[in-house]
């Protein structure tokens, strides 16, 4: 059983909603990332999403774009990100790690070589924003050969037919993008999220994560009532950016945010 699958099975037993923080690898500098990953687990994260910096992050809002630019100053490559996961695994063999990013760095590395290297380093899932199931055939073969879970996005604009087809390609969990827009959007409507999550549940038994627009304990708790997992990205990156240059402050600020979300989710 994959780490992601067993983690969700365990959470279900404990009636606990998963908290999934996102950080961009190498932001604001490479030595921050692995200690921050451990700190986030201690603060109550159940799975981790690690962003692979890309020069042209089309689906991201200004906060995560800036994180990519900060990381790229240090020339953080996909290979470097995978090495960070390997380092993280030396102390944590249980917390699932999902790489999130864009297709081109993976194209350059080659699907098979990427999947092989990532799986060996201890990566569990791969969320590639700009490869829909229609274009995924060869990519899926490589991921499945190495027992990596392909995580797919479902959007407010996804039709019932598309939702069913996406859920057929996905494993681990599916990720519902709660707003029409880029990451860090501010117009989250919990009622419409609940409706769409209910619709997705008719098509799959996979756990459903919800992200884009969750920025405090309150919105995390609201979404946590309907979703199996809440994903928090821009709210964390803002704290990283505000404390760039002070590694301890980054760790303590991000931990404080996650602890408040954890408490709100567990109430």
């Amino acid at each position: 059983m994959s780490r992601i699958k067993s983690r969700f099975a365990d959470l279900e037993k404990r009636h606990r909603t998963a908290l999934i923080p996102y950080v961009t690898a190498g932001d604001p500098e490479p030595s921050v990332t692995v200690p921050l990953m451990h700190a986030m687990v201690e603060a109550g994260a159940d799975l981790l999403e690690l962003g692979v910096p890309f020069s042209d992050p089309m689906a991201d809002g200004p906060v995560i774009q800036a994180a990519s630019e900060r990381a790229l100053v240090h020339h953080i490559s996909l290979k470097n990100v995978i090495e960070m996961v390997k380092e993280f695994r030396q102390r944590d063999n249980d917390t699932p790690v999902i790489l999130m990013g864009y297709l081109n760095p993976v194209e350059v590395m080659g699907y098979e070589h990427f999947a092989h290297t990532a799986a060996r380093a201890g990566v569990d899932g791969v969320l590639t924003v700009d490869i829909p199931p229609e274009e995924s055939r060869d990519f899926l073969v490589a991921l499945k050969n190495h027992k990596l879970d392909p995580i797919y996005l479902i959007a407010p604009t996804s039709s019932g037919e598309r939702i069913r087809s996406i859920c057929t390609s996905a494993s681990g969990f599916v990720y519902y993008v709660s707003v029409k827009g880029v990451t860090g959007a501010a117009n989250l409507e919990v009622a419409s999220v609940a409706d769409k999550v209910a619709e997705i549940r008719q098509s799959t038994n996979l756990p459903i994560g919800v992200g884009f627009g969750i920025n405090d304990a309150n919105s995390a708790a609201e979404v946590g009532k309907v979703a199996d997992a809440v994903v928090v990205g821009s709210a964390i990156i803002r704290r990283v950016a505000d404390n760039a240059g002070d590694k301890d402050a980054i760790v303590s600020e991000v931990s404080a945010l996650l602890q408040s979300m954890r408490m709100a989710l567990d109430k």
Partner: peptide, 20 residues
């Protein structure tokens, strides 16, 4: 039908844009 010119072209966008 999928917009491919040999191996080129296609639709490599985030899910939100697939329906539009």
């Amino acid at each position: 039908a999928g917009g491919h010119f040999g191996v080129y072209g296609g639709m490599f966008v985030a899910e939100t844009l697939m329906s539009p």
